[in-house]
Simulated scan of single mutants.
Amino acid sequence: MNRIIRYTYPRSANLFANRNPWAGLESEVDRLFESALADLAAPARAPRFPVDLYEDKDNTYVRAELPGVSREAIAVEMVDGYLTIAATRKQGEETFSLNRSVAIPEAVQADKVTAAYENGVLTVTLPKQEQVKPRKINVSVN
């Protein structure tokens, strides 16, 4: 059964006196259609897997859990500021493709990126450029 929800514009005392009452309607309708159609569009994309991003003073790390994927079935690329991880996993007769791209800051030494895969966890190490690393500055007393 479909339900019709009436959109009402919130009223407040003179905060938005000159604002058009229809201003938020377009984005609200877009959000409604995106959430309603998300399940229909999902099979068209390759399944995504979660990644963790963290950093220390020298490196940025991207960590992805890829259980059941062999090391040979993983491809890692760095192109135009994006780190792309692609993997394939076989389960019986079926083969699943996984793909994820992560925007990486420009402050990374792309030629020194390394990747390690151990116990189903891929860790990509992205060394920071020297000028980006935090530098301790001594304060002298006069």
Rank of each mutant, 00 (worst) to 15 (best):
M1P: 01
N2L: 03
N2T: 02
I5D: 04
Y9W: 06
P10A: 11
R19W: 02
N20F: 02
E28L: 08
D30V: 12
D30K: 11
S35L: 10
A36N: 08
L37E: 07
A42E: 14
A44Y: 14
A46E: 08
A46R: 12
A46F: 10
A46K: 07
P47V: 03
R48F: 02
P50N: 10
D52H: 05
D52L: 10
L53I: 06
D58L: 13
N59Q: 06
T60W: 10
Y61M: 11
R63E: 09
G68Q: 06
S70Y: 03
E72N: 08
A73C: 07
A75G: 02
V76T: 07
V76C: 01
V79M: 03
D80R: 07
D80Q: 13
D80V: 02
L83S: 14
T84L: 07
T84N: 05
I85F: 01
A86D: 15
E94A: 14
F96W: 03
F96K: 05
S97T: 15
N99Y: 13
N99T: 14
R100P: 07
S101Y: 09
S101R: 15
V102D: 02
A103E: 04
I104R: 03
E106C: 01
V108M: 05
V113C: 03
V113E: 03
V113P: 00
V113D: 01
V113T: 06
T114C: 02
A115Y: 00
A116Y: 12
A116S: 15
A116E: 15
Y117A: 11
L126P: 07
K128V: 09
E130S: 08
E130R: 09
P134Q: 08
P134C: 05
R135Q: 15
V141C: 08
